[in-house]
Amino acid sequence: MTETHATIPPGAPVFPPGRYGRRRQPGRRRPLLTVLLVVVSVAALTAVSVRLYRQYGDPAYDAQVITYTDITDNQVVVDFRVNLPEGGSAVCLLRARDNAGAEVAREEVPVTAAEGQRQVTVRHRLTTTARPFIGEVVRCRPPA
């Protein structure tokens, strides 16, 4: 004679008691751990995003080197254009490097746009410690 249990759904296999060891209960859910992991992940991604935004700046403060000229043993003149918010201002970091790529000058230059103006062209002379090979704008950011 076969046994029919009221708690076993039809079609489910019936195992003889004690023959295959103890059956495991379904795992206990841990919603607190899941929520904690999600919160930590979101916080970490937010921190990375903020750091990258601060490092690479606001696209509204975009700078382009037009030319670098008057290269001597102790100077280079850098002409550059900065896109700013209308009537805004920025601080641009300029540097000069020698043939080996070593930095021979670094200076922050304030740039201010006139009312209604979005692009400013600036000419700045960098005094260097050795003969420069190139003058460049590293980045522009809003003034502190």
Rank of each mutant, 00 (worst) to 15 (best):
T121D: 11
T72S: 15
A12N: 10
L45N: 01
T69W: 08
L94E: 10
V111F: 15
Q75F: 03
I8Q: 07
T128S: 01
L37F: 10
I8N: 08
C92K: 06
Q64A: 09
Q25C: 13
Q25N: 07
P26W: 15
I8H: 03
I66Q: 12
L36H: 00
R131G: 02
A43P: 06
A90W: 10
S41D: 09
G116W: 02
I8R: 14
P17S: 12
P31F: 07
V39P: 03
L94R: 15
V39Y: 00
Y20V: 02
R141T: 01
G18Y: 08
G57Q: 12
T2M: 09
R131S: 04
H124F: 07
G135I: 12
V42P: 05
L93M: 12
H5V: 06
R125F: 01
L84P: 04
G21H: 14
R97H: 15
Y68C: 01
A44E: 06
P31W: 13
P31K: 13
V91Y: 04
R123Q: 14
L94V: 07
N83C: 02
G116N: 02
P26C: 12
N74S: 10
A113Y: 04
R106K: 10
A113S: 02
T67M: 15
A60K: 10
R29I: 01
A43D: 06
T112E: 14
R131L: 05
R131C: 04
V38K: 00
E86H: 06
I66E: 11
P59C: 04
T2G: 03
R95T: 03
V120M: 02
E3A: 11
A144I: 04
V109G: 06
L37P: 01
L93E: 12
V138Y: 01
R131P: 03
F80H: 00
E86S: 06
C92H: 02
T7Y: 14
G18L: 08
E107D: 01
P143T: 08
R28G: 07
G101E: 09
Q75K: 10
R30A: 10
Q119F: 13
R125W: 00
R30D: 14
R81P: 03
G18K: 10
D73Q: 09
L37R: 09
I66T: 11
T121W: 04
N83T: 00
R123Y: 08
G21F: 14
A130W: 12
P26E: 13
V65L: 12
D98E: 13
I66V: 07
G87Q: 15
P16D: 05
